[in-house]
Simulated scan of single mutants.
Amino acid sequence: MGADRRQRIRRAFVGAASGPAVALLLTSCSGYYPVAVDSAEQMTGMWSDFSGATVEFEDDGTFVAEGFDTKDIVGWGCSGFAGRQHGTWTPSGTYGEVTFDGVDCEDMQLAFYGSPSSFVACFTRDVTSGGCTHEFSREDG
Rank of each mutant, 00 (worst) to 15 (best):
Cys29Ala: 15
Gly93Asn: 09
Pro116Ile: 11
Gly45Leu: 05
Asp38Tyr: 00
Glu58Trp: 06
Thr99Ser: 15
Phe68Ser: 09
Met46Asp: 10
Thr124Leu: 09
Trp89Met: 14
Arg138Thr: 02
Ala17Ile: 11
Thr90Ile: 11
Ser118Met: 07
Ala17Val: 14
Tyr95Gly: 10
Met46Leu: 15
Asp38Lys: 02
Pro91Gly: 07
Gln7Cys: 07
Cys78Ser: 14
Val120Phe: 07
Gln42Phe: 01
Ala17Cys: 14
Asp59Phe: 03
Thr90His: 03
Ser28His: 05
Tyr113Ile: 14
Ala21Ile: 14
Thr124Ile: 06
Trp76Gly: 00
Ser30Met: 07
Cys29Pro: 00
Gly31Arg: 05
Asp126His: 15
Glu66Ile: 03
Met46Thr: 12
Gln7Glu: 13
Phe50Lys: 14
Ser129Pro: 00
Trp76Asn: 10
Val22Cys: 08
Gly131Asn: 13
Val14Glu: 13
Val22Asp: 01
Ser92Thr: 05
Ala121Lys: 00
Ala40Glu: 09
Gly93Gln: 06
Gly61Tyr: 03
Arg84Ser: 15
Phe81Cys: 10
Glu97Pro: 00
Pro116Lys: 04
Thr133Glu: 12
Gly15Phe: 06
Glu97Gly: 07
Asp69Trp: 08
Val14His: 07
Leu110Gln: 05
Glu41Lys: 08
Thr133Pro: 00
Gly141Asp: 04
Gly45Arg: 01
Gly80Asp: 02
Thr88Ser: 15
Gln85Leu: 10
Ala121Pro: 01
Gln109Phe: 10
Met46Ala: 13
Glu56Cys: 04
Cys132Val: 09
Ala3Asn: 11
Ala12Ser: 09
Leu26Ser: 14
Trp76Ile: 03
Ala16Phe: 13
Ala12Asn: 09
Ala12Ile: 01
Gly83Gln: 11
Gly45Asn: 04
Gly77Phe: 05
Phe50Leu: 14
Met46Gln: 09
Ser79Glu: 10
Gly96Thr: 02
His134Asn: 10
Thr27Phe: 15
Val98Ser: 05
Trp76Pro: 00
Asp60Glu: 08
Leu25Val: 12
Ser39Cys: 05
Val64Cys: 09
Phe112Gly: 02
Gly80His: 03
Asp101Ser: 13
Val120Thr: 11
Asp107Glu: 13
Arg138Tyr: 01
Gln7Asp: 12
Ser48Cys: 04
Val103Ser: 10
Gln42Asn: 02
Ser79Thr: 11
Glu106Met: 08
Glu97His: 12
Thr90Met: 11
Arg138Trp: 00
Phe123Cys: 04
Gly52His: 09
Met46Asn: 08
Thr128Val: 08
Ala53Thr: 07
Ser51Ala: 15
Gly15Val: 06
Ala65Lys: 05
Ala12Phe: 06
Phe68His: 07
Trp89Gly: 10
Phe100Ala: 06
Gly19Val: 15
Ser18Tyr: 00
Gly67Arg: 06
Ala16Arg: 00
His134Met: 13
Gly114Met: 06
Val127Leu: 12
Gly93Ser: 10
Arg6Asn: 12
Val35Arg: 04
Glu66Arg: 13
Ala12Lys: 01
Val64Met: 13
Asp101Gln: 09
Asp72Glu: 14
Glu97Arg: 13
Val55Ile: 15
Arg11Glu: 15
Val35His: 03
Arg5Trp: 10
Ser118Glu: 14
Arg6Met: 11
Val120Cys: 04
Ala17Phe: 13
Val98Phe: 03
Ser129Phe: 01
Asp59Leu: 03
Gly80Asn: 04
Asp49Val: 08
Pro116Gln: 07
Gly15Tyr: 05
Ala12Pro: 00
His134Tyr: 12
Met108Glu: 01
Cys78Lys: 06
Ser115His: 06
